[in-house]
Design a protein around this nucleic acid. Structure first.
Lengths: 193, 193
DNA sequence: GCCAGCCAATAACCTAGATTAAGAAGCCAT
DNA sequence: ATGGCTTCTTAATCTAGGTTATTGGCTGGC
């Protein structure tokens, strides 16, 4: 399990808020607890919230035509998670968001988020910045998938999610770096030699 | 070659500006012409501008340890291109941005962009939105790389860049979908049957 | 204390796509 | 037109990683 997280500290890393603005923001958040394996969002649903993780760990993944899972993102405390496509378009998405262990999140609804942009324009900046960072990470991942071997991608994973290496089942890591659990096992055995 | 593009029309799709604000923005842009194969940004340089393409076509790519090229993005008219990582951190990046044909771009420097955020806060929103869209696209691409075969990725490419299918050399498309030009050629021959 | 589900490991075999090499075909610029 | 590029194609061989199947260990609920 991860240490608890504080939203305001997280936000203060990018923008400065007045106490009243902080309150306005906090009032929009609704806490929610999730049991291990509980879904925050299922395939085919419209994503109506961004979630900020305060405890536990979630993952966002999809299931392909052959039934294989592919993990797009892990979300330990202090990370945001949502089906960005569905959140923007308000159309049904393909992402499944699931708690990997008992977890707690703060939900910010899309309508509240839009209201927030109007009331506290600084949040426009805040979400621009974290979206930019997320984009950089994703671009690097595209590159990694194009140019690295499986074990190099595993190294990259260890670098990106150092806290998760030992707590996560191997099959989840395999579904993130893009190999089968069988090959992942073989690969790890080979790495030690 | 692509039709010419208009920045203001492009921006008006997401935000409404006063004439004075439009002028403020336009004054920050400096046009630049590029010959085919000319570089807008080389490996190891610090990226100091975002570029909006008005004519021609650019590509952003990297070269891996084995000397293979991997295309992260094509930029036909009306697209922005930059090494986001380097632009944010102002550290040397790995992206190479090259004109694939004679092209024209409008450059917005990082310092001007930051000034713009202060002078016309609406641009904070504008760039948040296009960054969000870009993120959605990139996430889909990660998924495509994890779950699709080469020819399915080619289909996805055709869908994403319909105007480029016939104008681009095959090797560039191969470097985008993540196969060798040799395999791409074999694959295309196979598709017709 | 036992059964049911996970999860990891190993092994034999299989395939998508890489590698290497060689020509053929287009496209300039002189 | 001709020599030098770059691009495209074909083909033989090779390999990273997938597939299928079996085993055994661990955990958690009743």
């Amino acid at each position: 399990m991860q240490p608890p997280a504080n939203v305001l500290q997280h936000i203060a890393r990018h923008i400065d808020l007045e106490p009243a603005e902080e309150k306005c923001f906090l009032d929009m958040l609704s806490p929610r607890s999730l049991k291990a394996r509980e879904l925050l969002l299922d395939e085919g649903e419209v994503c109506r919230h961004s979630a900020f993780v305060t405890r536990g760990c979630l993952r966002g993944y999809t299931i392909d035509q052959n039934g294989y899972e592919h993990v797009l993102q892990f979300a330990p405390p202090n990370w945001w998670i949502a089906d960005m496509y569905s959140l923007i378009t308000q159309k049904p998405g393909t992402l499944i968001i699931e708690a990997l262990e008992d977890s707690e999140v703060l939900l910010l609804s899309k309508t509240d988020q839009e209201q927030l942009y109007r009331d506290v324009p600084q949040f426009e900046r805040f979400f621009r910045i974290i979206t930019e960072n997320s984009l950089v990470t994703n671009r690097q991942r595209v590159l990694d998938n194009l140019s690295l071997t499986a074990s190099q991608r595993y190294e990259a994973f260890c670098h990106r999610y150092p806290t998760l290496i030992d707590t996560l089942p191997q099959k989840q890591i395999a579904a993130y770096i893009g190999v089968t659990p069988e090959f992942f096992s073989k690969m790890k055995a080979g790495l030690k030699k």
